[in-house]
Design a protein around this nucleic acid. Structure first.
Lengths: 206, 206
DNA sequence: GCATCGATGTGTACGATGTCCACATTGAAG
DNA sequence: CTTCAATGTGGACATCGTACACATCGATGC
């Protein structure tokens, strides 16, 4: 009758409930949507009582926000790891694909990250801004000054929109490769160059 | 002690509860987010008991889906009313602005429309497809064949992303005019033409 | 070694919610 | 005027988020 906890927890005191709760929430999020996730279920999954989470998070929203924050951080790391590609367009496309892939890999957390509850939480906003900043840097090295801001906002919006549509299966149920190809085609088209065509006059900054 | 209903309801039988519930839900949605909206609160606002809604909607999700469906229909009407502008880019931009304006006008319903719960409901999906079809028609009249599909998906994603970012105040708190200008700039930039620059070679289909 | 104390987890409790069931009320059809 | 199907009510139940008081434990001082 000891803990049936998923995470390594011993006896009365768990060890690292704070992190274990995040893991439990993550596991449950990939099963059901963020709206259906109950704090009590997270506690059960972690093998603790319904009230234990309150020692580590002020309320349910705080736990979810922490998870979203972790999500933004991880997304940022993935984006930072994207190497320069074959020309600026390729680099932007690679980053877009990376972000969409992240959404497809973590549907629950992704929806959480862009849900209303977490958009309000300062930590999540900060982590989100950090992720955007990475994209902004790359763009700054590529685009002319007056195009940077709209490009940053536009790509962010585009990627988020594509992720949402794909997660909701509003674009069919493509395989990962098909989804990636779709992202590439869409981004390339919107960047002004048709598929297979290069976009003259927009290659490289100073 | 008769009905304190907001809508025109008489005595025991309400008259048109089905529609009144939608109106009540709409009113409450503009106060609080879709996640916080309770079916009981909708019933209270309509001046009926907590169970009355179940005579008209199978469950809470069905009511919300009906509201989302109405939203997509109205959005479609607004999009259909957008006149041809000064060239194809201007027309696409006008439609993008129309859609974003709709989101800013109805934050609650908009979040509902793109929430997970309603993306699953067939009625909402149909209404959403109808709205997209309107955009697709316009695009078909403007763009070359192989650009149509990516353009349609890309614009839809872009507009949805921009709406989300604006609703979550992730792009500051612009006035309506500023938001419209932002949308114009972003869309124009992503369509390949810098602000004020025309995009040679992409004007007009046959 | 042992008492102590702050941190952490448990149990109980309360109000709110979604939804089920049985019953009440009604306008319209016979 | 009776009857009936549609519609609304009331009560009940499980679940949820969360507050309160209490239990348990590991480190700290002696």
């Amino acid at each position: 009758m000891w803990t049936l906890s998923t995470s390594t927890g011993a006896g009365y005191h768990h060890g690292d409930l704070r992190a274990a709760l995040l893991d439990s929430a993550l596991a449950l999020l990939n099963t059901e949507g963020p709206g259906e996730l109950s704090l009590r279920a997270v506690a059960r999954h972690a093998g603790v009582s319904a009230n234990a989470p309150y020692r580590h998070y002020r309320d349910k929203e705080a736990l979810l926000a922490a998870l979203a924050t972790r999500g933004f951080t991880e997304l940022g790391e993935r984006l930072a790891a994207v190497g320069p590609g074959d020309g600026p367009d390729a680099e932007l496309i690679a980053m877009a694909r990376t972000a969409v892939d992240y959404a497809l890999d973590h549907p629950g957390v992704y929806r959480l990250m862009f849900g209303q509850a977490c958009s309000t939480h300062p930590d999540a906003i900060a982590a989100s801004d950090a992720a955007i900043a990475i994209v902004a840097e790359r763009i700054a090295a590529i685009a002319e000054a007056e195009r940077r801001e709209p490009l940053r906002i536009g790509l962010w919006a585009l990627v988020h929109g594509l992720s949402t549509l794909l997660l909701d299966e509003r674009l069919g149920t493509p395989t990962r490769a098909e989804a990636d190809a779709l992202v590439e085609t869409v981004v390339r088209t919107l960047l002004g160059a048709g598929p297979g065509l290069s976009a003259p006059g927009r290659w490289g900054a100073p």
